[in-house]
């Protein structure tokens, strides 16, 4: 029997490398499993020692049309683009327009919004752009 020719060995090596590259590419964003359209907001949370806030679009759109938040309450169509702080929420702006104990539960329920994995960057979860490119601030701060 002849020994395996070097070309085959090189090919096998390269194949293994290719698999490694493909595997890394596919598995790196494999954490992306959450609900389509869930928004992670981590403008200030990590720095303040809180878990990032997660906004479930699906839950809210069953109860309100887009217009209520995006026109009446002034939410921009941009994850993390609204500079929301707890001060503004308690003041009745943004989430605080409803999460005030009247329309919806109020701000004492910290953990219901601040339930994200620590260090999760601001993002629209499972969005097309997230599948095409690395989310802004992946593995680091937002800016």
């Amino acid at each position: 029997m002849k020994q395996v020719p070097w070309v085959t060995r090189v090919r096998r090596g390269l194949t293994a490398l290719l698999f490694a590259v493909v595997a890394i590419t596919l598995w790196t964003p494999s954490d992306s499993r959450a609900e389509y359209g869930d928004i992670v907001i981590n403008n200030y949370a990590d720095a303040a020692g809180m878990r990032p806030a997660i906004f479930p679009h699906w839950f809210h759109r069953i109860r309100f049309r887009c217009k209520v938040c995006h026109a009446d309450l002034g939410f921009q169509f941009k994850a993390g683009g609204n500079e929301i702080t707890m001060l503004k929420i308690i003041d009745g702006q943004f989430c605080g327009a409803c999460h005030n104990g009247e329309v919806a539960w109020s701000v004492e329920n910290c953990d219901l919004c601040h339930s994200g994995k620590p260090n999760t960057p601001t993002q629209v979860h499972e969005s097309t752009i997230q599948k095409l490119a690395v989310p802004v601030g992946q593995g680091g701060s937002k800016k």
């Binding site: 499993r33 609900e35 479930p56 839950f59 953990d111 219901l112 601040h114 339930s115 994995k117 999760t120």
Partner: peptide
């Protein structure tokens, strides 16, 4: 789901989609 922290009490209280 990969973004919620299973260790958070709030996560357990949320509605499954």
């Amino acid at each position: 789901d990969g973004i919620h922290d299973p260790a958070s009490e709030g996560t357990a209280a949320l509605m499954p989609p």
